[in-house]
Amino acid sequence: MSKFQFVVFDWDGTLMDSIGRIVSSMQRTAEHIGLAVPSEQATKDIIGLSLEPAIERLFGVLDSQKKQIFLERYKDEYVTLNTVASPMFDDAVNSLEALRSSNVQLGVATGKARRGLDRVWQETNMAQFFPYSRCANESKGKPNPDMLIELMHEAGYSPDNTVMVGDSIHDMKMASAAGVFPIGVTMGAHRADQLKAAGAEYIASSLTELSNFILKERL
């Protein structure tokens, strides 16, 4: 059986071009509440993690009141205040349709909370592609492998026929820990060399290249 039966995608920086919006929202939030503003690269390095561990990695341990203020302000920044666009990548729909029409099962494992994923799915009409999904508030966060393990169990696949696609080192580490085939994409948080160092076994520079690779491997 092909090892490319079940393809699980990260969301931000993998299917949605949202890295700029995340970085600027994090920086603006830090400035607003009086924390040192992190660099663009430092902020990219936490993308893929759940929000609270990401905040701790960037700013250290905040007291409970300040952390709550940060969380609320960040959500306001990202959802309503930030004007940086976060569209789907141009080839996302065609690539997903090509996979689905070839009987590849699709899923999502994301550092977003369920409310955030549902919101962008409603805005983009992308839920149609993903019968299986797991969010940061429903499982242990990346790079812990539980998200992938739970998705495989729910969908009825094993590590031997599951693929994880993501733009961050946290996605690659999660995939390796779960024993699935890790594929990195270079449109988001981390460079090809960083993804390879974190365990990526294939690197794609676009979703079109990714879907072509998967479909070729299934022949």
Rank of each mutant, 00 (worst) to 15 (best):
A192C: 10
I169F: 03
I169S: 04
S25A: 13
L215E: 03
M152F: 03
M126K: 10
A177F: 06
D12M: 13
S158L: 12
V37Y: 03
M126E: 01
M172R: 14
T124S: 05
E56M: 14
A178C: 15
H170P: 06
P145S: 09
C135G: 07
A109T: 05
G13Q: 06
G179I: 02
M1V: 10
A36H: 14
E150Y: 10
M26N: 01
A178E: 05
E217Y: 05
E52R: 05
M147F: 08
A155S: 14
A109E: 00
T162S: 07
Q68Y: 04
F89L: 01
Y78H: 01
G60E: 09
K140A: 14
P182Y: 14
E123L: 12
G179Q: 02
Q128K: 05
P159A: 03
T83F: 12
L58S: 11
L15E: 12
G166H: 06
F213G: 13
D167G: 01
M26H: 01
S206Y: 08
N82W: 00
L71R: 08
Y132R: 15
D76T: 00
L207P: 03
L210T: 13
E209D: 15
E154W: 08
V79E: 00
F213H: 15
D160H: 13
M147V: 09
K3F: 13
L151E: 01
G199A: 12
